[in-house]
C-alpha cells in the first residue's frame, strides 16, 4: 500500500471485463492491478498487498472459491466476487468462505463502484466498529444503541435492534441470512429464515421503508440483506 489512492487487484481472465473495470476504477482515482488467473493473482496479492481484490469466480486454472480460500488463509483484505446470476448457492458459499460482497454479472458499473467504496471506507481491521452509521435520514448510533429517523427516535425491540446493528456494522455490504440468524438468534436457528423475514418486515415498517421500493434495507434474494449506506 503506497500513496493516498487505494490499490485494487482485479483477478479475471476476460480482457474486456478487465478493461472496463480498469477504466472505471481509474476514473475514480484508484490504482489498478490486473491478473489473468488464480496463481498469478495470489502471487500479486502477496507481493503488492492491494487494498481490495476483485475476484472472478470462473477462472481458468483454479476455482475462484479456492483462490478465496487461499487468500483468506493469510490476509483479511476485502474481496468482491463476480458471479453469474442464477447461482445463489455459489454466492452464499463465497460469502461464507470470507468474501465481503458480490456483484452479479452482468452488472451496472455504479452498483459495482458503490460496493467498492463501501468496502474501502472501513479501516482494515474490523474490530473497531464505526460509531455512527448514516443512511439518508436514518442514523444508527452503535455506541449509544440509538436509532433515529431524522429527529425522531425509533423504538425497536431487542431483536430488531440487533439485526439493524449487524447490518449497520456491514453498511453497504451484503450480510448473509445465515450470519444474521446466527448473530441475532444463535447458531441453532441458522435455518429459520422466516424469523428473519418477519423481523425485517417489522423493522421496515418502523423505519417507514416501503417494501416495494426500500430505501434502507435491501433484500438480496436468496443471499441476505444489505443496508444502503451513504457513499
Amino acid at each position: 500500500m503506497s500513496g493516498d489512492s487505494a490499490s485494487v487487484l482485479i483477478i479475471d481472465d476476460e480482457p474486456q471485463i478487465r478493461k472496463f473495470l480498469r477504466i472505471s476504477l481509474a476514473s475514480q482515482g484508484y490504482r489498478v492491478l490486473e491478473s489473468t488467473d488464480g496463481r498469478d493473482g495470489l502471487a500479486r496479492a502477496a507481493l503488492e498487498q492491494p487494498d481490495l481484490v476483485v475476484l472472478d469466480l470462473g477462472l481458468p486454472d483454479m476455482d475462484g472459491q479456492e483462490v478465496l480460500g487461499e487468500l483468506r488463509s493469510w490476509t483479511r483484505v476485502p474481496v468482491i466476487v463476480l458471479s453469474v446470476r442464477s447461482s445463489e448457492a455459489e454466492k452464499v458459499r463465497a460469502l461464507d468462505a470470507g468474501a465481503n460482497d458480490y456483484v452479479t454479472k452482468p452488472f451496472g458499473i455504479q452498483e459495482f463502484l458503490a460496493r467498492v467504496r463501501a468496502l474501502l471506507r472501513l479501516p482494515q481491521s474490523t474490530t473497531n466498529s464505526p460509531g455512527q452509521v448514516l443512511c439518508g435520514a436514518l442514523c444508527i448510533d452503535l455506541a449509544f444503541r440509538r436509532v433515529s429517523l431524522g429527529e425522531r427516535v425509533v423504538s425497536l425491540t431487542k431483536k430488531e435492534y440487533a439485526l439493524l446493528a449487524e447490518l449497520a456494522r456491514h453498511a453497504g455490504r451484503v450480510v448473509t441470512q445465515q450470519h444474521l440468524l446466527k448473530i441475532v438468534w444463535g447458531p441453532s436457528h441458522a435455518g429459520d429464515s422466516h424469523y428473519l423475514r418477519v423481523v425485517i418486515g417489522h423493522l421496515r415498517q418502523k423505519l417507514g421503508d416501503d417494501p416495494a421500493a426500500p430505501r434502507f434495507i435491501v433484500t438480496e434474494a436468496g443471499v441476505g440483506y444489505r443496508l444502503i449506506s451513504d457513499a
Binding site: 429464515s193 422466516h194 423475514r197 418486515g201 417494501p211 416495494a212
Partner: peptide
C-alpha cells in the same frame, strides 16, 4: 423453497 416476503419479490422485480 424458503420463506419469502411477497413485498421483497415485488421490489426485486421492479
Amino acid at each position: 423453497r424458503d420463506w419469502v416476503a411477497p413485498g421483497d419479490i415485488v421490489a426485486s422485480a421492479l
